[in-house]
């Protein structure tokens, strides 16, 4: 393909990324390093600060909210369980919104919308958790993660202190993110990488692989050229980025296992319908 076409594709995907994803890496890094004019994020580091920070988190979408038990007379452990579940539900609401954002981004990839509709569904079903996992990386550092559009910083130690299996949910993402962030990709690189992930021709059940592989090939060329231009001093960056796709699949497999455990162990758990659709029969 012509270099000009590849550059134009990179520009198009970057613009779509900026349009569809509200918290960019540039903004997240500014918040994490304190280089922003906005207020510093509210820090959640224990149960007390979680309760205080709850008002910042959008947690009104799930019917479970209306079913909170009366707190009077409940023991501290019971209260803690409720807070953890409420937090989990608000995470689910945000994840469902994020799936919608990723869908809009996918639709903006040239050629995606003319693929067989069933294949579009399959690409999203298998790609979206990988995409969301990779998009967490810019929000994280070794000590914690931004949540709620960057308004809150939740510490890694606090997430590790939650009861099992909640406590197992985020640690692999921190381990992945700390390594991934060392590649120092920016938002324009991320936009192309996300498109490459979405256009994976080896997802189970695809009906027509060839056009998907052709689209991915083109985006891969664009990513390779873009990384060479954008990071002229970073040797083998293209290969290093592609290697991360293997780690991502392991990350998703682990995530699905934790959700399975949660479904078995938490009677109060109600999984968001959109996330249920994605998780059903996945791996």
């Amino acid at each position: 393909p012509e270099a000009a076409d590849l550059r134009s594709l990179a520009k198009h995907l970057y613009e779509s990324y900026l349009k569809n994803f509200p918290l960019t890496k540039a903004k997240a890094r500014a918040i994490l390093s304190g280089k922003t004019n906005d207020n510093a994020p509210f820090v959640i580091h224990d149960m007390k600060s979680l309760l205080e920070g709850e008002q910042f988190i959008n947690c009104c979408h799930l019917p479970h909210q209306g079913q909170q038990r009366e707190s009077t007379g409940a023991t501290l452990t019971e209260l803690q369980r409720e807070v953890e579940l409420r937090f989990f539900h608000s995470c689910q609401s945000r994840s469902a919104e994020a799936v919608s954002e990723v869908t809009e981004f996918a639709k903006s990839i040239p050629g995606f919308s003319i693929l067989d509709l069933n294949d579009q569904v399959t690409l999203l079903k298998y790609g979206v958790i990988e995409v969301l996992s990779i998009m967490m990386a810019p929000l994280m550092n070794k000590d914690g993660t931004l949540i709620s559009y960057g308004q809150i910083f939740m510490t890694r130690e606090f997430l590790k202190s939650l009861r099992k299996p909640f406590s197992d949910m985020m640690e692999p993402k921190f381990e992945f993110s700390v390594k991934f962030n060392m590649l120092e990709l920016d938002d324009s690189d991320m936009a192309l990488f996300l498109a490459v992930i979405i256009l994976s021709g080896d997802r189970p059940g695809l009906l027509n692989v060839k056009p998907i592989e052709e689209l991915q090939e083109n985006v891969l060329h664009s990513l390779e050229l873009h990384l060479k231009t954008n990071h002229p001093d970073s040797l083998h960056l293209f290969a290093k980025v592609l290697q991360k796709m293997t780690d991502l699949r392991q990350l998703v497999t682990h995530h699905v296992q934790v959700i399975q455990l949660l479904k078995e162990s938490e009677v109060d758990l109600c999984l968001h319908p959109l996330l249920q659709e994605i998780m059903r029969d996945l791996y």
Binding site: A96, S100, E104, V121, E277
Partner: peptide, 20 residues
């Protein structure tokens, strides 16, 4: 199709506001 009706809906709607 029934199994993934929300994903279908998200894909077929031209803009993002979908009742999630």
């Amino acid at each position: 199709k029934e199994k993934h009706k929300i994903l279908h809906r998200l894909l077929q709607n031209s803009t993002s506001p979908v009742d999630l």
